[in-house]
Amino acid sequence: MQQTIDWSEVEVGCELEPLVKPAITKVQLLKYAGASGDFNLIHTDVETARQVGLPGTIAHGMLSMGFLGQYASQLAGTQGFVSRLQVRFAGMVFPGDVLTCRAKVTKKESNQIDLELFVEREPGKALTSGEATLTLRP
């Protein structure tokens, strides 16, 4: 875990320390399928993926959102919780991809911090992007 953030010191527009995830593996996609109950075979079976016109298996969109959930939860630490997390899935993610989560503070209001956040493989190309709200304890 990274150090506790002093939110009173963080200003709107500030970019936060990114989270770099280890490369996604096929085993991780099997584990995620089992843990989430998403058994769509495009994530775990190459034959099914190709039948529907994909180059190969693709990661669950929800896994990328899970990375952003991990990141937002880490930013909130034990000072509060993630009260909102919203994403759009724009680009496909494949086994072997190394993803980086990034966030910027867009608003601070009493005990709420709004973030704009996204997942990228290459710098500047968001594959999954969205917003989060952290609600801090008073």
């Binding site: 058994f39 075979l41 529907v52 969109g61 993630v82 009260s83 909102r84 997390l85 759009r88 969205g130």
Partner: peptide, 13 residues
């Protein structure tokens, strides 16, 4: 199921 793509998702608590 295999014809489906996830477009977006939101959680609020």
């Amino acid at each position: 199921l295999s014809r489906v793509l996830h477009g977006g998702q939101e959680y609020s608590y």
